[in-house]
Design a protein around this nucleic acid. Structure first.
Lengths: 212, 212
DNA sequence: CTATTTATGTACCTTACGGTATAGTACAGA
DNA sequence: TCTGTACTATACCGTAAGGTACATAAATAG
């Protein structure tokens, strides 16, 4: 009991895992992404990860916990990327970076068109599963806040008019974000998504006005 | 062979159906709506409609055809309601009616929060199923066109500035529409959806300017 | 080296899935 | 009334679903 909360150097006791959890979660995420939560079987996940089912169950619990782990993984990734984009000093470069990343992600591998992982795999379950529903709400709120803060920062930096409404501006970008996700999954071409994003950025420019 | 394409008055030959197809499709739609396409079983649909499975298979084919029939049903409903809303002479009353109807639909029975049927049941399947993907694209295009036409009509009627951009205005309403759907399914309250819609309408007002 | 702990791999369990065979039933037409 | 036809009801089929028992393997602790 001496070293109760032992730090990282002490190796775990039994046989070590033969896989990297994050890599596995990436494969899991990609599989759920294509086929949806209900549409993905544990056998598919087993095949996609190369792990046998008992390993998956041992490491993550059950299908839902595995999904939630993949969702967390995805959302953390989004938050990190957006934080990076929003750290760019110029507002419109920020928005450009944000939309560019989204469109890349939403097109997916081989320009297949997969949309937002959360929108198209978590939302169908959200009406029946309060855990998933809460995760979605938290993520939406988080994106709202991040965008509002970004616009407030731009106002403080004098990049846009002091009379601009950060909440209205954030709404435009958020709604555009979700729309692009839907269009991507419906099979619209990258150029069409880009045009939508550009339109939104242009609108933000018009709304935000010249710096006072 | 005389009356090959007989008109409606000739009754069908065998035992008549004991159910009304549209009523059944409504129940089917509601069930898919809650649990998603993959998350809904034929047994659930059988229970929800009160029909035994052979009747469902006999009338609709298989699960996917049954789903597509429910989707068609839903989309026809949306088109009809929006056509009605867009027939209101005043533009902003039109938009009010459109959003009011959407929010009602998206909240669902008992304010449970179900979102748009197409967005949350068809989209997850869209990345793997070209039939569903195409139906979604057609529906999105149709809503785009309807909104653009509505704004053009408002311009012709001198309700908004002749310099306004109908496509930009339509984009705002469409993106807002899909966003409200997502928020509804994530469990946001009706008042929050209403506030989002009002913000979009307010933005449209600002963008459209006073009639020249 | 031995005991303990944890992960792996195979094989399997129970249940639920989409779909159907078959026997019976209600109608139109002759 | 008889016949053909289409729908209904029950019971069922083969398969795939989520999840696990159990024997084995690889590590640490003593």
């Amino acid at each position: 009991m001496v070293q109760k909360n032992s730090t990282a150097q002490s190796a775990p006791r039994g046989r070590p895992r033969s896989f990297d959890t994050d890599e596995v979660l990436d494969r899991v995420r990609d599989t759920f992404w294509r086929y949806g939560y209900a549409g993905t079987s544990m056998d598919q996940l087993s095949a996609a990860t190369g792990l046998h089912k008992p390993s998956l169950y041992g490491a993550f619990g059950d299908k839902k916990k595995l999904y939630l782990a993949a969702l967390d993984n995805y959302l953390a990734d989004v938050r990190a990327e957006f934080a990076e984009a929003f750290a760019i000093p110029d507002l419109f470069e920020s928005l450009e970076a944000m939309t560019e990343w989204s469109i890349d992600k939403f097109m997916g591998k081989d320009e297949l068109g997969t949309g937002c992982f959360m929108m198209h795999t978590a939302m169908p379950e959200a009406s029946e599963d309060p855990d998933i529903s809460r995760a979605v709400r938290e993520s939406m709120d988080s994106l709202d806040r991040a965008l509002v803060r970004r616009f407030e920062k731009a106002m403080e930096a004098g990049q846009i008019s002091a009379e601009a409404d950060p909440h209205a501006l954030a709404m435009v970008m958020v709604a555009n974000h979700y729309e692009i996700s839907g269009r991507a999954r419906a099979g619209y071409a990258r150029a069409e998504l880009r045009a939508l994003a550009d339109r939104a950025i242009k609108l933000v420019k018009a709304m935000a006005g010249a710096p006072a």
